[in-house]
Simulated scan of single mutants.
Amino acid sequence: MRPRRKALPRDAWAEINVGLLLVPGLTGWAQINGRDELAIAEKVRLDAEYLKRQSTGFDMLILLMTAVKVVKGDGVTH
């Protein structure tokens, strides 16, 4: 039997609806800010933040930060 998930806070649902607008990609704001270590609500909050800040410059920052994390091996848990 798998463990029960904690219920999300009521205010998280608005951000979840916004998060559904994101198209999956190579990397993301939530992935470089904790990935598997983040609770679902925090990932959703970061995805909503990405939508608010979305720009070519912000995307370039995310790609740069992704490259740095890959080279350094940050966040690798397995």
Rank of each mutant, 00 (worst) to 15 (best):
L8Y: 04
L8G: 06
P9L: 08
R10I: 10
R10E: 15
R10P: 09
D11A: 12
A12V: 10
A12E: 03
A12C: 03
A12M: 08
A14E: 10
E15D: 12
I16H: 10
V18D: 07
G19I: 06
G19K: 08
L20F: 13
L20N: 03
L20P: 03
L21R: 08
L22W: 04
L22A: 13
V23E: 10
V23N: 04
V23R: 13
G25S: 10
L26Q: 12
L26D: 13
L26R: 10
G28S: 10
G28R: 03
Q31W: 04
Q31A: 12
Q31M: 04
N33G: 06
N33E: 14
N33M: 04
G34Y: 06
R35M: 09
R35W: 00
D36Q: 14
D36S: 15
E37D: 14
E37S: 14
E37V: 11
E37P: 02
E37G: 13
A39N: 06
A39S: 12
A41Q: 07
A41I: 05
E42V: 04
K43G: 12
V44S: 00
V44L: 05
V44Q: 11
V44A: 02
R45Q: 02
R45H: 07
L46Q: 06
D47S: 10
D47Q: 14
A48E: 00
A48L: 01
E49R: 15
L51S: 05
L51I: 15
R53L: 11
R53S: 04
Q54F: 12
Q54I: 07
G57N: 06
G57K: 15
G57C: 14
F58V: 04
M60V: 15
M60W: 12
M60C: 13
L61H: 09
I62R: 02
I62C: 04
I62K: 01
I62E: 01
L63E: 01
L63Y: 14
M65Q: 15
M65Y: 08
M65V: 06
M65L: 07
T66W: 07
T66I: 11
T66P: 06
A67T: 11
A67K: 09
A67N: 09
V68L: 13
V68T: 11
K69H: 13
K69V: 02
V70R: 14
V70A: 13
V70P: 08
